[in-house]
Design a protein around this nucleic acid. Sequence first.
DNA 1: AGTGCCATGTGAACGAGCGCACAAGCGCGT
DNA 2: ACGCGCTTGTGCGCTCGTTCACATGGCACT
Lengths: 226, 226
Amino acid sequence: MAESTRDRVTDESIPEATVARLPVYLRGLLELSDAGVVTVSSVELAELAGVNAANVRKDLSYLHAHGTRGVGYEVGHLVSEISLVLGGGRPSPVVIVGVGNLGRALSRYDGFVAGGFPIAGLVDADPSVVGRKVAGTVVRPVDELADLVVETGATVGIVATPAAAAQEAVEHLVGAGVRSILNFAPSVVTVPDHVDVRQVDLATELQILGYHQHRRSATVTSRVAG
Amino acid sequence: MAESTRDRVTDESIPEATVARLPVYLRGLLELSDAGVVTVSSVELAELAGVNAANVRKDLSYLHAHGTRGVGYEVGHLVSEISLVLGGGRPSPVVIVGVGNLGRALSRYDGFVAGGFPIAGLVDADPSVVGRKVAGTVVRPVDELADLVVETGATVGIVATPAAAAQEAVEHLVGAGVRSILNFAPSVVTVPDHVDVRQVDLATELQILGYHQHRRSATVTSRVAG
DNA sequence: AGTGCCATGTGAACGAGCGCACAAGCGCGT
DNA sequence: ACGCGCTTGTGCGCTCGTTCACATGGCACT
């Protein structure tokens, strides 16, 4: 009994860095599966995912997915195991808040549905876009967000509003019961402990790239100068 | 002489984790600057950026930006210092490859221009979209990518193609001389050492959120069961 | 000028993650 | 039946990042 409890706890705790790689493995594995490949070695999977082979093995060791020594891992088994860990098996409907340029693009993005994240609905604070049809669904006002979440069983919220409206949008989502939020607005938002926010910031990414680029040229310059 | 060399080298090497936070600091500082605030303490800036205050101080210590004990940091000085480190002072024109839903949304995104990343041009492999006008610029064929880069002095490339075309798009960009790439396609791309790629993957982000959500409910379940 | 207050700057400890290198084990061919 | 080769699984050391705690030092007020 103590054994099984310990095992279960062990299963539940997967390092964050590993979790971040699992989707990448899954993508590669699905490709292999489509190609009819049955088994895959850690080296092959590592190459596919762009990481170290030992890292792949350690990552997979956190899952129930054990491989066969001398052979490799069974592709189908890995796919189902990773899918289970990542999604719990069920699809998670997504609500998008903010139907500007980005919101529209996201609502039309095929990868969501394919990845088990169907669009449950769109909401916006601007009355002039409410009621319009985008990507097959009608935009609803923010007031109805809670209803929408209840109706569709949405568990994930995407914030695609301007930065100034992001905190408010997040609070609406949290109030509606959503506990997983993807924030595209360039704004730091604060949430209760039980809510999980991931930030996707295009400008930030570009600036990081800018740093490295600037650094490269500066290094060359100083090397020439020195 | 040896002193100045050491100083310069020290300046150039900023930890990656710090670089990733600098844009967030910069955003907060610009807000403060607009509000007329002159000095800011590490505690205030930390709250604004959602990080630890000691972390802020250590991050800023990597820059030339020294604060005044008992007072804090000068907002204007921090802004110019961080801007310099991140962008080198000059704007970096951006080329977008792939004018689908996402590419169009990105080309209309205001944050790029504001952050010093003007859109230099759009290219696409599909002849049916080439020649169309999107966000004020005409879409050009991929063949002309190298010309476009030379004409505009673009230094950054954004890949917004389907996954299958991502590697090819990256190679075109690298061939055209671009050394900083932001990849939105859900695909691991390989590049030469001197090229820097950052991956922005929406589906992956959602799946990571999905893991935590699944984990929360599973934990509750097992706690009830045990 | 002196003193107290307050925020910076940093040394050190702690923790997470990564990758090497090796032992353990499975299958296949003989 | 047995050994060889291949791949998994993992212990260990290293590096990077974060945070605490404290010493350092400037500013304002008297």
